[in-house]
Design a protein around this nucleic acid. Structure first.
Length: 128
DNA sequence: CCCGTGACTCTAC
DNA sequence: CGTAGAGCCACGG
């Protein structure tokens, strides 16, 4: 698929995030059928330009806001989340996270056995 | 065409 | 919990 289609898919997934809930970049990418493109998601959000897009509901895999701490975007994202009832402490969303690969997704999108990220990640190396 | 950059992620220490 | 190292992707110089 071309980049344009991928972008649309990503935007669609982001728009589908329910109010008051959040999702990780990797999770969004996966749900958009683009495993391993978490970075692409970030790129799309950085230059979207759509005011109605709930970009603030997308966080890093560890629940932290991806933007530069203290920056305007950072503050705005935290504020928007709190406005939706999401607990944000020191740029981090309070969530009882499970293990890697499904910290945010499993809890937010349901227990429907999501496959572990394993994308863009360091592949199993055993060195030393 | 090579190289640096970044709203990313994961494994090791 | 924090840092360092290593993949991966799309883009711009």
């Amino acid at each position: 698929m071309d980049a344009g289609a991928a972008r649309e898919r990503i935007l669609a997934v982001v728009r589908a995030i329910p109010r008051g809930q959040v999702a990780g970049y990797g999770e969004v990418a996966r749900r958009a059928g683009l495993p391993g493109r978490a970075r692409l998601v970030a790129r799309v959000l950085s230059g979207n330009g759509d005011p109605s897009l709930p970009w603030h509901r997308v966080l890093r895999s560890d629940g932290r806001i991806a933007l530069e701490p203290g920056s305007d975007g950072w503050r705005e994202q935290a504020q928007r989340l709190r406005a939706e009832g999401v607990e944000v402490v020191d740029g981090r969303v309070r969530q009882p996270m499970a293990g890697p690969g499904e910290r945010l997704d499993a809890l937010l999108w349901g227990p429907g056995g999501e496959a572990p990220a394993a994308a863009g990640a360091a592949r199993p190396r055993r060195k030393k």
